[in-house]
Amino acid sequence: METRLGEYVDEFTRRDWQTLPPDAVEDPVRLAVVGAGWFTAEWALPGIERSAFTEATVVTDVDADAVDAVASGTDLTGVPPEAFRAGEVAEEYDAVYVATPNATHLQYVEAAAKQGKAVLCEKPMEASPERAERLVEVCEDASVPLMVGYRMQTDPVVRRLKDLVDAGFVGDPIHVHATMSQTMLGELTGDTDQWRLDPDLSGGCALMDIGIYPLNTTRFVLDADPVAVSGHTRTEHEAFEGVDEHADFRVEFPGSVAAMCTVSQNATHASRLEISGTEGRVVLDPAFYEREERELSVERGDVRMDVEVDPVHQLEEEFAYFGHHLLTETPFHPDGRHALVDSRALEAIYESAETGESVRLTE
Protein backbone atom coordinates (compact mmCIF):
# COMPACT_ATOMS: atom_id res chain seq x y z
CA MET A 1 0.00 0.00 0.00
CA GLU A 2 2.79 2.42 0.85
CA THR A 3 4.42 1.80 -2.54
CA ARG A 4 1.13 2.48 -4.33
CA LEU A 5 0.70 5.71 -2.39
CA GLY A 6 4.16 6.74 -3.47
CA GLU A 7 3.27 6.17 -7.08
CA TYR A 8 0.35 8.57 -6.78
CA VAL A 9 2.32 11.41 -5.24
CA ASP A 10 5.32 11.17 -7.55
CA GLU A 11 5.46 14.28 -9.75
CA PHE A 12 2.56 15.65 -7.78
CA THR A 13 1.97 18.73 -9.91
CA ARG A 14 1.97 16.87 -13.24
CA ARG A 15 -0.61 17.92 -15.81
CA ASP A 16 -2.27 14.62 -16.64
CA TRP A 17 -4.36 16.34 -19.31
CA GLN A 18 -1.49 17.84 -21.30
CA THR A 19 -0.47 16.30 -24.63
CA LEU A 20 0.96 19.36 -26.38
CA PRO A 21 4.43 20.48 -25.22
CA PRO A 22 4.44 24.17 -24.26
CA ASP A 23 7.51 24.87 -26.38
CA ALA A 24 5.61 23.62 -29.44
CA VAL A 25 3.12 26.48 -29.23
CA GLU A 26 3.92 29.26 -31.67
CA ASP A 27 0.52 30.96 -31.65
CA PRO A 28 -1.18 30.83 -28.25
CA VAL A 29 -4.91 31.40 -27.91
CA ARG A 30 -5.58 35.15 -27.86
CA LEU A 31 -8.06 36.15 -25.16
CA ALA A 32 -10.42 39.06 -24.78
CA VAL A 33 -10.85 39.63 -21.04
CA VAL A 34 -14.30 40.90 -20.05
CA GLY A 35 -14.21 42.43 -16.59
CA ALA A 36 -11.34 44.45 -15.15
CA GLY A 37 -11.92 44.04 -11.42
CA TRP A 38 -9.42 43.08 -8.73
CA PHE A 39 -9.60 39.35 -9.50
CA THR A 40 -8.78 39.95 -13.15
CA ALA A 41 -5.94 42.32 -12.36
CA GLU A 42 -4.36 40.30 -9.54
CA TRP A 43 -5.00 36.71 -10.64
CA ALA A 44 -6.53 36.19 -14.09
CA LEU A 45 -4.20 38.33 -16.17
CA PRO A 46 -1.05 36.98 -14.46
CA GLY A 47 -2.43 33.47 -14.97
CA ILE A 48 -3.00 34.11 -18.67
CA GLU A 49 0.50 35.51 -19.01
CA ARG A 50 2.11 32.58 -17.18
CA SER A 51 0.33 30.04 -19.37
CA ALA A 52 2.21 29.03 -22.52
CA PHE A 53 -1.09 28.35 -24.27
CA THR A 54 -2.78 31.76 -23.87
CA GLU A 55 -2.16 35.47 -24.13
CA ALA A 56 -4.43 38.42 -23.32
CA THR A 57 -4.93 40.92 -26.15
CA VAL A 58 -8.15 42.82 -25.34
CA VAL A 59 -9.80 44.02 -22.15
CA THR A 60 -13.21 45.59 -21.57
CA ASP A 61 -15.29 46.71 -18.60
CA VAL A 62 -18.13 49.14 -17.86
CA ASP A 63 -15.59 51.00 -15.71
CA ALA A 64 -13.39 52.88 -18.18
CA ASP A 65 -10.91 53.78 -15.45
CA ALA A 66 -10.46 50.09 -14.58
CA VAL A 67 -9.81 49.30 -18.24
CA ASP A 68 -7.21 52.06 -18.42
CA ALA A 69 -5.56 50.84 -15.23
CA VAL A 70 -5.33 47.25 -16.49
CA ALA A 71 -4.22 48.15 -20.03
CA SER A 72 -1.74 50.85 -19.02
CA GLY A 73 1.82 49.90 -19.84
CA THR A 74 0.80 46.74 -21.69
CA ASP A 75 -0.02 45.73 -25.26
CA LEU A 76 -3.67 45.15 -24.32
CA THR A 77 -6.31 46.91 -26.38
CA GLY A 78 -8.85 48.50 -24.05
CA VAL A 79 -12.36 48.96 -25.44
CA PRO A 80 -15.77 49.91 -24.01
CA PRO A 81 -18.34 47.09 -23.69
CA GLU A 82 -20.48 48.34 -26.56
CA ALA A 83 -17.49 48.16 -28.90
CA PHE A 84 -16.73 44.63 -27.71
CA ARG A 85 -20.32 43.48 -28.16
CA ALA A 86 -20.38 45.00 -31.64
CA GLY A 87 -17.28 42.99 -32.56
CA GLU A 88 -15.23 46.05 -33.44
CA VAL A 89 -11.96 44.37 -32.38
CA ALA A 90 -13.00 40.74 -32.88
CA GLU A 91 -10.03 40.11 -35.16
CA GLU A 92 -7.73 40.65 -32.17
CA TYR A 93 -8.86 37.61 -30.13
CA ASP A 94 -9.76 33.94 -30.56
CA ALA A 95 -11.66 33.37 -27.33
CA VAL A 96 -13.38 35.32 -24.56
CA TYR A 97 -12.94 35.14 -20.77
CA VAL A 98 -15.96 36.53 -18.88
CA ALA A 99 -15.34 37.69 -15.30
CA THR A 100 -18.13 40.20 -14.64
CA PRO A 101 -20.96 40.14 -12.07
CA ASN A 102 -22.98 36.93 -12.38
CA ALA A 103 -26.14 38.44 -13.88
CA THR A 104 -24.16 40.08 -16.70
CA HIS A 105 -22.41 36.96 -17.99
CA LEU A 106 -25.11 36.13 -20.52
CA GLN A 107 -24.89 39.34 -22.53
CA TYR A 108 -21.15 38.97 -23.07
CA VAL A 109 -21.36 35.26 -23.85
CA GLU A 110 -24.09 36.03 -26.39
CA ALA A 111 -21.76 38.53 -28.05
CA ALA A 112 -18.86 36.08 -28.07
CA ALA A 113 -21.01 33.30 -29.50
CA LYS A 114 -22.31 35.61 -32.24
CA GLN A 115 -18.68 36.34 -33.13
CA GLY A 116 -17.88 32.61 -33.21
CA LYS A 117 -15.46 32.83 -30.27
CA ALA A 118 -14.83 30.12 -27.68
CA VAL A 119 -15.82 31.08 -24.13
CA LEU A 120 -14.38 30.63 -20.65
CA CYS A 121 -17.07 31.89 -18.26
CA GLU A 122 -16.54 32.38 -14.54
CA LYS A 123 -18.63 30.46 -12.06
CA PRO A 124 -21.43 30.53 -11.17
CA MET A 125 -22.44 30.62 -14.82
CA GLU A 126 -25.29 33.10 -14.25
CA ALA A 127 -27.51 34.49 -11.49
CA SER A 128 -30.33 31.97 -12.09
CA PRO A 129 -30.72 28.50 -13.63
CA GLU A 130 -32.94 29.95 -16.36
CA ARG A 131 -30.29 32.42 -17.48
CA ALA A 132 -27.60 29.76 -17.14
CA GLU A 133 -29.62 27.46 -19.38
CA ARG A 134 -29.92 30.23 -21.95
CA LEU A 135 -26.16 30.83 -21.80
CA VAL A 136 -25.45 27.17 -22.54
CA GLU A 137 -27.96 27.10 -25.38
CA VAL A 138 -26.44 30.21 -26.94
CA CYS A 139 -23.06 28.51 -27.16
CA GLU A 140 -24.51 25.22 -28.38
CA ASP A 141 -26.56 26.95 -31.07
CA ALA A 142 -23.45 28.80 -32.29
CA SER A 143 -21.28 25.65 -32.01
CA VAL A 144 -18.69 27.47 -29.90
CA PRO A 145 -16.85 25.68 -27.07
CA LEU A 146 -17.87 26.72 -23.54
CA MET A 147 -15.79 26.05 -20.44
CA VAL A 148 -16.78 27.21 -16.95
CA GLY A 149 -14.03 28.42 -14.63
CA TYR A 150 -13.93 25.73 -11.96
CA ARG A 151 -10.27 26.18 -11.21
CA MET A 152 -10.30 23.45 -8.56
CA GLN A 153 -10.77 20.90 -11.34
CA THR A 154 -7.46 21.89 -12.95
CA ASP A 155 -5.59 22.29 -9.65
CA PRO A 156 -3.08 19.40 -9.47
CA VAL A 157 -3.61 18.72 -5.76
CA VAL A 158 -7.36 18.28 -6.26
CA ARG A 159 -6.68 16.02 -9.23
CA ARG A 160 -4.30 13.91 -7.12
CA LEU A 161 -6.94 13.70 -4.39
CA LYS A 162 -9.42 12.49 -6.99
CA ASP A 163 -6.83 9.93 -8.19
CA LEU A 164 -6.64 8.50 -4.69
CA VAL A 165 -10.42 8.29 -4.33
CA ASP A 166 -10.75 6.75 -7.81
CA ALA A 167 -8.06 4.19 -6.93
CA GLY A 168 -10.03 3.07 -3.89
CA PHE A 169 -7.69 4.24 -1.14
CA VAL A 170 -10.64 5.32 1.01
CA GLY A 171 -12.76 2.34 -0.03
CA ASP A 172 -16.33 3.32 -0.80
CA PRO A 173 -16.90 7.02 -0.02
CA ILE A 174 -19.39 7.46 2.81
CA HIS A 175 -19.44 11.15 3.66
CA VAL A 176 -17.78 14.45 2.84
CA HIS A 177 -17.21 17.46 5.08
CA ALA A 178 -16.31 20.75 3.43
CA THR A 179 -16.05 24.31 4.65
CA MET A 180 -15.07 27.66 3.19
CA SER A 181 -15.18 31.04 4.88
CA GLN A 182 -13.75 34.52 4.57
CA THR A 183 -14.33 38.01 5.88
CA MET A 184 -15.49 39.37 2.54
CA LEU A 185 -15.65 43.01 3.59
CA GLY A 186 -12.19 42.79 5.10
CA GLU A 187 -10.16 40.45 2.89
CA LEU A 188 -11.56 41.50 -0.47
CA THR A 189 -12.88 45.01 -0.06
CA GLY A 190 -14.29 47.26 2.62
CA ASP A 191 -16.79 48.65 0.14
CA THR A 192 -20.39 47.65 0.87
CA ASP A 193 -21.51 49.06 -2.48
CA GLN A 194 -20.51 45.98 -4.45
CA TRP A 195 -22.28 43.53 -6.73
CA ARG A 196 -22.03 40.48 -4.44
CA LEU A 197 -24.34 42.26 -2.01
CA ASP A 198 -26.88 43.02 -4.77
CA PRO A 199 -29.16 39.97 -5.19
CA ASP A 200 -30.14 41.04 -8.71
CA LEU A 201 -26.51 40.96 -9.83
CA SER A 202 -25.21 38.04 -7.77
CA GLY A 203 -28.25 35.81 -7.32
CA GLY A 204 -27.15 35.39 -3.70
CA CYS A 205 -23.98 35.82 -1.70
CA ALA A 206 -22.48 33.08 0.48
CA LEU A 207 -23.96 30.16 -1.44
CA MET A 208 -23.52 31.60 -4.93
CA ASP A 209 -20.07 33.09 -4.41
CA ILE A 210 -18.29 30.45 -2.34
CA GLY A 211 -20.79 27.64 -1.71
CA ILE A 212 -20.17 26.55 -5.27
CA TYR A 213 -16.58 25.55 -4.35
CA PRO A 214 -17.38 22.67 -1.96
CA LEU A 215 -20.39 21.70 -4.09
CA ASN A 216 -18.56 21.43 -7.40
CA THR A 217 -15.28 20.10 -6.00
CA THR A 218 -17.15 17.29 -4.25
CA ARG A 219 -18.97 16.48 -7.50
CA PHE A 220 -15.64 16.40 -9.33
CA VAL A 221 -13.82 14.21 -6.81
CA LEU A 222 -16.70 11.75 -6.43
CA ASP A 223 -17.54 11.89 -10.15
CA ALA A 224 -21.21 12.08 -9.22
CA ASP A 225 -24.13 14.49 -9.34
CA PRO A 226 -26.42 15.34 -6.42
CA VAL A 227 -29.84 13.73 -6.09
CA ALA A 228 -31.17 15.83 -3.20
CA VAL A 229 -30.21 18.90 -1.19
CA SER A 230 -31.26 20.73 1.95
CA GLY A 231 -29.92 23.84 3.61
CA HIS A 232 -30.19 26.89 5.81
CA THR A 233 -29.06 30.47 5.36
CA ARG A 234 -28.82 33.35 7.78
CA THR A 235 -27.83 36.99 7.76
CA GLU A 236 -26.76 39.05 10.77
CA HIS A 237 -24.58 41.92 9.55
CA GLU A 238 -26.57 44.84 8.14
CA ALA A 239 -24.26 45.05 5.12
CA PHE A 240 -25.60 41.67 3.95
CA GLU A 241 -29.26 42.68 4.06
CA GLY A 242 -31.07 41.02 1.16
CA VAL A 243 -28.48 38.27 0.63
CA ASP A 244 -27.15 35.29 2.59
CA GLU A 245 -24.18 35.95 4.85
CA HIS A 246 -23.78 32.38 6.14
CA ALA A 247 -25.07 29.04 4.85
CA ASP A 248 -24.92 25.36 5.67
CA PHE A 249 -26.19 22.69 3.35
CA ARG A 250 -26.36 18.94 2.85
CA VAL A 251 -25.91 17.34 -0.55
CA GLU A 252 -26.93 13.73 -1.12
CA PHE A 253 -25.24 11.76 -3.89
CA PRO A 254 -26.12 8.33 -5.34
CA GLY A 255 -25.55 5.52 -2.88
CA SER A 256 -26.60 7.78 0.00
CA VAL A 257 -23.18 9.44 0.11
CA ALA A 258 -23.68 12.73 1.94
CA ALA A 259 -21.70 15.96 1.83
CA MET A 260 -22.07 18.39 4.73
CA CYS A 261 -20.96 21.89 3.78
CA THR A 262 -20.66 25.23 5.57
CA VAL A 263 -19.78 28.58 4.00
CA SER A 264 -19.60 32.13 5.27
CA GLN A 265 -18.75 35.57 3.93
CA ASN A 266 -18.17 36.87 7.45
CA ALA A 267 -16.13 34.33 9.38
CA THR A 268 -12.45 33.57 9.89
CA HIS A 269 -10.61 32.75 6.68
CA ALA A 270 -10.52 28.95 6.31
CA SER A 271 -11.22 26.09 3.94
CA ARG A 272 -11.10 22.31 4.21
CA LEU A 273 -12.24 19.22 2.31
CA GLU A 274 -12.44 15.80 3.99
CA ILE A 275 -13.65 12.58 2.36
CA SER A 276 -14.16 9.52 4.54
CA GLY A 277 -14.80 6.03 3.23
CA THR A 278 -15.12 2.45 4.35
CA GLU A 279 -11.35 1.98 4.42
CA GLY A 280 -9.71 5.37 4.78
CA ARG A 281 -9.81 9.13 4.68
CA VAL A 282 -8.29 11.98 2.66
CA VAL A 283 -8.09 15.57 3.90
CA LEU A 284 -7.09 18.70 2.00
CA ASP A 285 -6.46 21.67 4.27
CA PRO A 286 -6.54 24.47 3.21
CA ALA A 287 -8.65 23.43 0.24
CA PHE A 288 -10.15 26.12 -1.95
CA TYR A 289 -8.22 29.37 -1.98
CA GLU A 290 -5.83 30.34 -4.73
CA ARG A 291 -3.03 31.79 -2.65
CA GLU A 292 -2.16 29.24 0.04
CA GLU A 293 0.24 26.37 0.63
CA ARG A 294 -1.70 23.23 1.38
CA GLU A 295 -1.32 19.78 2.87
CA LEU A 296 -2.94 16.57 1.67
CA SER A 297 -3.33 13.89 4.32
CA VAL A 298 -4.13 10.28 3.44
CA GLU A 299 -5.06 7.68 6.06
CA ARG A 300 -5.81 4.00 5.57
CA GLY A 301 -5.39 1.40 8.25
CA ASP A 302 -2.04 1.97 9.92
CA VAL A 303 -0.74 3.97 6.94
CA ARG A 304 -0.74 7.77 7.11
CA MET A 305 0.88 10.07 4.59
CA ASP A 306 1.07 13.87 4.74
CA VAL A 307 2.06 15.66 1.56
CA GLU A 308 3.05 19.30 1.82
CA VAL A 309 2.05 20.66 -1.54
CA ASP A 310 4.16 23.19 -3.40
CA PRO A 311 1.65 25.83 -4.49
CA VAL A 312 0.89 26.31 -8.16
CA HIS A 313 -0.71 29.35 -9.72
CA GLN A 314 -4.28 28.08 -9.98
CA LEU A 315 -5.29 30.55 -12.67
CA GLU A 316 -2.28 29.58 -14.75
CA GLU A 317 -3.43 25.97 -14.57
CA GLU A 318 -6.98 26.92 -15.56
CA PHE A 319 -5.97 29.06 -18.52
CA ALA A 320 -3.35 26.55 -19.63
CA TYR A 321 -6.04 23.85 -19.66
CA PHE A 322 -8.42 26.13 -21.60
CA GLY A 323 -5.84 27.16 -24.19
CA HIS A 324 -4.38 23.67 -24.53
CA HIS A 325 -7.77 22.10 -25.14
CA LEU A 326 -8.67 24.70 -27.75
CA LEU A 327 -5.38 24.22 -29.56
CA THR A 328 -5.72 20.43 -29.51
CA GLU A 329 -9.48 20.55 -30.17
CA THR A 330 -10.13 18.51 -27.04
CA PRO A 331 -13.52 18.80 -25.26
CA PHE A 332 -13.54 20.51 -21.86
CA HIS A 333 -14.69 18.61 -18.81
CA PRO A 334 -16.22 21.51 -16.85
CA ASP A 335 -18.53 22.53 -19.70
CA GLY A 336 -21.87 24.32 -19.63
CA ARG A 337 -24.03 21.26 -19.07
CA HIS A 338 -21.83 20.26 -16.15
CA ALA A 339 -22.22 23.75 -14.65
CA LEU A 340 -26.02 23.69 -15.01
CA VAL A 341 -26.14 20.96 -12.37
CA ASP A 342 -24.61 23.40 -9.87
CA SER A 343 -27.02 26.19 -10.86
CA ARG A 344 -30.01 23.94 -10.22
CA ALA A 345 -28.57 22.58 -6.98
CA LEU A 346 -27.89 26.07 -5.59
CA GLU A 347 -31.43 27.16 -6.45
CA ALA A 348 -32.75 24.07 -4.68
CA ILE A 349 -30.69 24.82 -1.57
CA TYR A 350 -32.20 28.31 -1.45
CA GLU A 351 -35.64 26.74 -1.86
CA SER A 352 -34.93 24.37 1.02
CA ALA A 353 -33.77 27.29 3.18
CA GLU A 354 -37.14 28.96 2.60
CA THR A 355 -39.36 25.90 3.04
CA GLY A 356 -37.39 23.89 5.59
CA GLU A 357 -37.78 20.82 3.39
CA SER A 358 -35.29 18.68 1.49
CA VAL A 359 -35.48 19.15 -2.28
CA ARG A 360 -35.11 16.29 -4.75
CA LEU A 361 -33.22 17.09 -7.95
CA THR A 362 -34.41 15.84 -11.30
CA GLU A 363 -33.09 16.07 -14.85
Rank of each mutant, 00 (worst) to 15 (best):
M1G: 09
E2D: 12
D16R: 11
W17N: 04
G37N: 06
T40V: 14
P46R: 03
I48S: 05
F53D: 03
E55H: 08
T60M: 03
T60G: 08
S72N: 13
T74C: 11
L76R: 06
A83F: 02
F84I: 13
R85V: 12
A86D: 13
D94F: 08
A95R: 04
V96Y: 03
A113F: 06
K114P: 00
K117E: 11
L120I: 12
C121Q: 12
E122Y: 09
K123H: 05
V136C: 03
E137Y: 04
L146A: 12
Q153S: 14
L164Y: 05
I174N: 00
T179D: 13
M180L: 12
M180F: 10
L188Q: 09
T192I: 11
P199Q: 09
A206R: 01
A206P: 00
I210A: 04
T218L: 02
L222R: 04
D223H: 11
D223I: 06
D225K: 12
D225E: 15
A228H: 04
G231M: 04
T233G: 01
T235P: 04
D248K: 06
G255R: 00
S264A: 12
Q265K: 09
A267E: 13
L273M: 14
L273N: 07
E274F: 00
G277D: 05
T278D: 00
T278N: 00
T278G: 00
V282E: 05
L296K: 04
D302V: 07
D306Y: 00
V307A: 04
D310L: 03
F319Y: 15
A320S: 15
A320Y: 05
F322M: 01
H324C: 06
L327D: 10
L327S: 12
T328G: 10
T328F: 11
R337V: 12
L340Y: 07
V341W: 03
V341G: 04
A345M: 05
A348N: 02
E351Y: 01
S352Y: 06
G356H: 09
G356Q: 11
E357G: 02
